[in-house]
Design a protein around this nucleic acid. Structure first.
Lengths: 201, 201
DNA sequence: GTCTATACCATGATAGAC
DNA sequence: GTCTATCATGGTATAGAC
């Protein structure tokens, strides 16, 4: 019986350590992207030896996948925790705003649109795919409800709207405007939300 | 006097060869991005030895810069060659459509938003910067004229509109929809143009 | 499980013959 | 200017001691 707390404590230590590793990975992924991020940098940021990383994660791809999965789980938690009395269109805007705020703080990795080793690893990662499908479903429902309210154009297929919102969360416009130092973070996010849902015209 | 044609012929050969190199670079940049593109691949696609590449371009960055400069010059030629009787807003849409069509054919490199060695090389490349400023100026004039026509929202600063249009030319939504095989290229471009200027709502 | 040290490989860049 | 062959670097991954 007295063994249980000790084991749990060790496991907690492990979880804390691995969380720190994933934190560092997340930041580096957001700052440099998968290809330019090196395992040396991750190890240095965590403060452990590079070889120790490989005791926790078998490869660079697996490490990045863990970061992406945690991001998706955070997104799912946010979507599920939103005020249900908010109009669907406002919930959609709220999700995009949440993602953009994280990105402004340097915490949102850029997705791998191209054929890199990471993309393949993610497609073979059932946990990642499962979370992604869950998120797609939740967002798809919101989009269809917003369309029923007349708040989303009826001539756009749901998946076009979905992908467009996803793409806005990694919109390079944010980087351009941010590096200009001319607008505040809130202003930049307002611009992006506005151009996404209302257009330029 | 008889020397002139010979020299010109040799120079023409050189230009043709370097054009082939830049073509290959352009395709690989569009397909894999700067970091994942290797000089071996470029050499293989051109059909020459890697060492020969370095007789034409001193570094990988210089090679990529040449591709980006040619792209900018093509863009400038397109903008300057547009029908002047077309309304400014339609000229803007036409430019974005032109870029998206190139991208669908796999010929538009993704810009380096992050701090890679390419970005630094481009910022120190006066030819590149000069072309970029020319394009920004032409596009900025179009945007302001379109705004005067009431076709662009007056609450958006010109540079926000400009960056947003640039960003749409590399929108990952195009890749998502294209890999789905569910829509034709023209449909995808129509979706992107429409969501860019008219929004989702 | 953490460390130091290292194997192994990909890649950017170069040397030197022709 | 093109080639073959090679160097130098840096990065993923691993071995083996503690």
């Amino acid at each position: 019986m007295s063994k249980e707390p000790k084991l749990s404590f060790k496991q907690q230590q492990l979880i804390v350590r691995e969380n720190a590793i994933v934190d560092a990975t997340n930041n580096l992924l957001a700052k440099k992207g998968f290809d330019l991020m090196t395992m040396d940098e991750v190890a240095a940021e965590v403060g452990i030896a590079k070889a120790s990383l490989y005791k926790h994660f078998p490869s660079k791809e697996a490490l990045a996948a863990a970061a992406m999965i945690r991001l998706l789980e955070n997104a799912l938690a946010f979507v599920r925790g939103m005020e249900t009395n908010l109009a669907p269109i406002d919930q959609l805007k709220s999700v995009l705003q949440w993602a953009l705020e994280i990105r402004l703080r340097g915490g949102l990795p850029t997705l791998p649109t191209e054929n890199t080793s990471l993309r393949e690893a993610l497609l073979n990662n059932t946990r990642y795919i499962s979370r992604l499908m869950d998120l797609n479903e939740l967002m798809g429902e919101l989009i269809e409800r917003a369309r029923a309210d007349g708040k989303i154009r009826k001539d756009l297929p749901t998946e076009v709207v979905l992908f467009t919102i996803y793409a806005r969360s990694c919109d390079p416009t944010l980087d351009y405007l941010h590096s200009n130092e001319q607008y505040s973070g809130d202003q930049i996010i307002a611009f992006l939300l506005s151009t996404c849902f209302d257009g330029l015209s």
